[in-house]
């Protein structure tokens, strides 16, 4: 059994028994490769009333290797408009890249992204959105993001 399976099994058990934090729900976790969660910002924010979906993709080395995390972009869910979120759903957040730590978890990532949205003061796309999206790889982990501020 892959190392990732055992760890994800534990996270899933915790989610189903203890529940998820406010504004975060588990949408789909049928296997230990891809999970979907919904995310919304509760309270006053620029994203009031909006619900987003996150896709997590795990490789067999999770949590030693970081999950590939992006916002879902389909008929039901669209990525939030945020200076660190590209219109294809890719996210520029240091904890998903150079600042990943194996003690983090799916829920910990969701909470970080939730607070990234909650603290947003300027609902705009990243300045290089069009250029990035035109050439972006399928897997955001293949992108070498440059982190512009250390708020997230």
């Amino acid at each position: 059994m892959a190392v990732s399976t055992r760890r994800l099994q534990k996270e899933l058990t915790e989610i189903t028994t203890a529940g998820t934090p406010c504004g975060i729900t588990l949408l789909k976790a049928d296997d230990f490769q891809t999970w979907f969660l919904t995310l919304e910002v509760l309270g006053e924010s620029l994203y009031q009333g909006e619900v987003f979906a996150l896709m997590f993709r795990f490789d067999s080395q999770y949590p030693i290797s970081s999950p590939a995390v992006q916002f879902v972009n389909d008929e039901t869910y669209q990525p939030p408009i945020h200076p660190h979120v590209y219109s294809n759903g890719h996210i520029c957040a240091s904890i998903l890249g150079s600042e990943w730590s194996p003690v983090l978890s799916v829920i910990a990532v969701c909470i970080t992204l939730q607070s990234m949205l909650a603290s947003c003061k300027d609902k705009t796309r990243p300045p290089d959105n069009d250029r990035y999206v035109a050439h972006a790889p399928d897997n955001p982990k293949k992108t070498r993001f440059v982190y512009h501020d250390d708020e997230v």
Partner: peptide, 9 residues
């Protein structure tokens, strides 16, 4: 009891 923060075992 305490668990390893990496594998949660």
């Amino acid at each position: 009891g305490d668990v390893c923060g990496i594998c949660r075992v």
